[in-house]
Amino acid sequence: MASERFQKRSSDTSPGITTASLPDIIFMLLIFFMVTTVLRETEIQVRTELPDAEALTKIDQKRLISNVYIGPVIRGPREGETAVQIDDALIEESSAIRTIMYNQLQEEPRLIVSLRVDRESEMQVVNEVQQELREAGTLRINYSSNPAVDQ
């Protein structure tokens, strides 16, 4: 009787590896990735519906890109007016672009300026910005566009 009880107990105490903490580890990973993934850095204040194009190139190095948004303002007192936005702010005077871009170029000499321009914007504004970019010396530009749907 006593030996029977002893045997039973020894079979009970053989434990498996506890997997109870595994979900916690994975949840931690999940939350870490969700928190560190940045979806959008800047709030876009102008509408930029990009044009379609065929001869596209990809820019893999995201670090090199600086975005310039051109399009009609979405809301606020200047609604509908075509404006230029760099980072978070609308540009009041186009000559400010020169300074901003020059400073960015000093930090990153291989800078690529990605022009995200609304399809209906007039060339006048785009050209004004391009003249400023030339003044700043940021000559590598990219007309951001969506891949054209095959006919």
Partner: peptide, 13 residues
Amino acid sequence: NVDTGIGMTLPPQ
């Protein structure tokens, strides 16, 4: 999202 577009080089000032 990878930025796609038409790459150009502006003429220097």
